[in-house]
């Protein structure tokens, strides 16, 4: 078995979640790496959309920002930002949205706004950006986040975007018709919502990771599904394509 890093496992597991016919709203960083890895391996026809307005983009390197020129140059078309949010996102044309955050709770609600009180924050984070409406407008949401006790918390300091709210049918009761977070992919495991309680529950553990490790890096008592699988290890090809993508990206960003 090839040697790999936990973050590589995370990106590869996220990439595998995407299908060839998906229409995907891509965020910068881990989501962008996962989506482009999927496009370069098993999902060559996947439609990638970045909120800068680029529809069906095929970058050769990962963009540093959400609107790098290459996204526009390789896109099928580029629309204005109001059109992006109104017709494409809020119009319900996007199947999968990717999100991450500084904090997540067990119902996959996310905080990207502040650590501490809003008026006197200990850390002022960038804020919601597209997330509040991505979370409710996309057909379903995949979340990618590395685990840790400071980020996987019992109670969020601020709810920037909703997941399954307070569990059960609380999301639907707000009038939201989309599925919300169906997968949470971490550097240790894959979580999915429990069918009844909607609590994010471990369904697959990455090779070599223990249940104790997952619990030690989570701020709530972790639930495990009745049948927990082992995530298949990255294949040589997945690792090769991902590493080439990152190497190309690093060269391009250093040069510019």
């Amino acid at each position: 078995m090839a040697d790999y890093k936990p973050t590589e496992m995370m990106t590869i597991a996220a990439a595998r979640s995407l299908k060839n016919d998906d229409i995907c709203f891509v965020g910068i960083g881990q989501p962008s790496a996962a989506c482009n890895l999927a496009r370069l391996t098993h999902a060559p026809d996947i439609t990638l959309i970045y909120e800068s307005g680029t529809l069906g983009t095929k970058p050769t390197v990962l963009p540093l920002s959400i609107g790098d020129g290459e996204l526009c140059e390789t896109a099928l078309t580029t629309v204005s930002v109001p059109e992006m949010f109104r017709y494409w996102l809020q119009g319900g044309r996007i199947k999968v949205g990717f999100l991450g955050g500084a904090q997540i709770d067990k119902y996959a609600n996310l905080n990207t706004t502040v650590v501490g009180p809003y008026d006197k924050p200990k850390v002022r984070l960038p804020g919601g950006g597209g997330a509040p409406e991505i979370a409710t407008s996309c057909g379903e949401i995949f979340i990618i986040m590395a685990q840790g006790k400071r980020s996987f918390v019992d109670k969020l300091d601020f709810v920037t975007s909703i997941g399954h709210v307070s569990g059960g049918d609380s999301r639907q009761k707000l009038g939201v018709k989309t599925k919300g977070p169906t997968k949470l992919i971490t550097d240790l495991a894959i979580f999915a919502p429990d069918p009844e309680t909607r609590e994010m529950t471990v369904v697959s553990i990455h090779p070599g990771v223990t249940r104790e490790q997952i619990q030690d890096n989570t701020g709530w008592t972790v639930k495990f599904a009745a049948q927990v699988e082992e995530t298949p290890a990255p294949t040589a090809r997945e690792l090769e394509v991902l590493r080439e993508l990152h190497a190309r990206t690093a060269r391009a960003h250093a040069a510019a």
Binding site: R86, Y118, P132, E133, T136, V159, S161, L174, G175, V176
Partner: peptide
């Protein structure tokens, strides 16, 4: 967009359930 259209406000499906 509402400003460009000369409207007083923007109306949209958003901010559902969050703290903003």
């Amino acid at each position: 967009e509402a400003g460009a259209a000369g409207q007083p406000c923007a109306i949209f499906r958003g901010y559902i359930g969050g703290d903003l």
